[in-house]
Design a protein around this nucleic acid. Structure first.
Lengths: 336, 336
DNA sequence: TATTGGCACTCGATAGAATAGAGTGCTAGG
DNA sequence: CCTAGCACTCTATTCTATCGAGTGCCAATA
């Protein structure tokens, strides 16, 4: 039966994708006969392409143009020809290595620099999501007196990030009371995930209790702040599409960070690394594909990086880049 | 002599700008005669427009189209008709008020939210630069022991921002030594601008001296990190121009943060709030204008906000928005 | 039976010609 | 000094003709 994908058909599909990704123009049978490593005549290729079209892998922009891949065609290409453990370009491999040995500074900077690295490697828009608050543990809580009525609350988490907030008190507080509260909070909260904070039981000392309640309230706020997204590469979007309308739609969508984050989550939760066009389920991104990879710190998946480009993207290269960067980021964060 | 700008010519120029900003199409004499509050015939208007063209305020895309303003035309418009103390729209005024009373959280978030506010108010790209390191003073320096060989360096600055870094030591250090170093640093550095840090003179205690040198080194690094830029509104750029090439050029330029920052500095240093097209001196931004305003915290200019849009922008509205937001931001930062 | 050369056909892209209309500059008369 | 009138210019639009890339199909072939 015709629905069977024999190896020649697959080779033709592969060649169409490769060619179209490179040239952005519908691929015809004669071009394939010349270029691809397929030793049959254009007529034979036409027959195969006809089948591939009826099976939904290829489509024609109009009668008498070449074929371009459908989302289903890209999907087959990715599943069949792009192996995950990819032999990546040597050059970009080196630059990623270099980046992560040189990287330093605050966590936020690390993430946005990583996002920039990824966008520059691939020429598509890059997304880096910060640690998931469920996996971030409180390491220490400090209260530092600024003046009698104002106290700096300081939290260091298990990823080395520091969050702070100034607490305003209604009455003066002494250094010794602060120390009691500080010690109590650290003892009580060390190792607790930022995502699940209970009310502390009262100690009986009204001032200390007041400040503990305030502190826990503020720590809860930190949860929102740790869930961070870094998206870079708007200009690459403008290079990837030539309809300004598409550019606008994609950029508008990328600016809705929560949408991008849940998109990436969805893909990962299905065990996928690639989502193509209509698979995304987001109309404005119908012409886009997303490539994602989680990164692992000390054996735990804490966040993910992703890439948003046109469906017509160089999947092997992009997958290699995403894998490389996520590995590098995980390793770097495990050290520091 | 014909170079004189009488009030009727000025009114015509003004009407051309207003009309062109709204409709994005070359403005003809008959349209002006109908629309503008100018009670003369199209023929008279044509004569005046001819003069305005020869004087460089207007130009024709081609022989028989209407006129559009040149950069010089926009400049005259802004200098003459846009008063700085502007009666702003009531609606946006309220939303800005509301934003700043509700705003909270870390400084970085404050800035990026402000940038988003500004881009949404105006529909152009927004820039917010964080405090200038020259005006940021060190308020306190703390050293907190993480384990015997690792110390958390913590700096609070005069704007309430906190920077931190983990110092790795070659030998163990005791709590008491840490305290000596901590006190010494705070005493020595309180009130010193982050931009001008000297080497501390040695105390004689090798361990304390070692850590002080390390600490000052790290504090210097903080300087770079405090100089932050928040640029939002890439999608607005895609809406503002209809040539995808222009969109790309502008977005690429906006991604070079240092360029944007120095651009804003240049404009402000000339005492200007608006720079138009060629005045920017940056080829890729030839079709853009920039509107800026510094913001003042406790009587001191610490940073600035800006806006990048097409030269064909609604200057009165944008100037009002920029002024409003810079005032709001300054006030908000003065409180917290 | 699978492959291939030949061929008619389709349809977008390109170029040229004709037309309409918007807007101008100029001139002559109020 | 202003303006009505008019000839002129140039773009945008429409229509037509043509070109050519690429197809689907069929008959011939190995």
């Amino acid at each position: 039966m015709s629905g069977f994908m024999d190896s020649r058909k697959a080779a033709i599909l592969r060649a169409v994708v490769d060619e179209y990704v490179q040239c952005a123009e519908p691929v015809g049978s004669s071009l394939l006969a010349r270029v691809a490593g397929i030793q049959v005549s254009p007529a034979t290729i036409r027959n195969e392409m006809n089948l591939l079209e009826h099976e939904g892998y290829l489509t024609q922009p109009h009668t008498s143009a070449g074929r371009i891949p459908t989302d289903k065609g890209y999907r087959y290409y990715v599943d069949t020809f792009v192996n995950d453990a990819n032999d990546s370009d040597i050059i970009q491999f080196q630059s990623v290595e270099e980046f992560f040995t040189k990287a330093h500074g605050a966590l936020a900077e690390m993430f946005s620099d990583t996002s920039r690295l990824l966008t520059n490697l691939t020429n598509y828009a890059a997304v880096v999501t910060g640690p998931n608050p469920e996996t971030v543990l409180i390491r220490s809580v400090q209260l530092i007196s600024l003046d009698p009525k104002r106290v700096l609350l300081l939290m260091v988490d298990s990823k080395g990030a520091v969050e702070k907030k100034t607490l305003e008190l209604s009455t003066d507080i002494s250094e010794s009371e602060l120390e009691v509260a500080s010690n109590f909070l650290t003892r009580r909260l060390r190792g607790v995930p930022l995502g699940s904070l209970d009310e502390p039981e009262p100690l009986g000392e009204p001032l200390v209790d007041q400040i503990c309640v305030l502190a826990v309230e503020s720590l809860r706020e930190f949860q929102g702040e740790t869930e961070s997204v870094y998206i870079e590469g708007a200009s690459k979007v403008a290079s990837a599409f030539d309809a300004v309308d598409t550019v606008r739609r994609v950029l508008v969508t990328l600016e809705q960070h929560f949408l991008v984050v849940s998109l990436i989550r969805d893909v990962l939760s299905k065990g996928q690394k690639v989502a193509i066009g209509s698979e995304l389920g987001i109309a404005p991104l119908a012409e886009c594909s997303v490539v994602v990879s989680p990164y692992v710190v000390e054996g735990e998946q804490v966040g993910s990086i992703g890439l948003v480009g046109p469906t017509r993207m160089n999947y092997p290269k992009v997958l290699a880049a995403v894998n490389l960067v996520s590995a590098g980021l995980g390793k770097r964060l495990s050290e520091g």
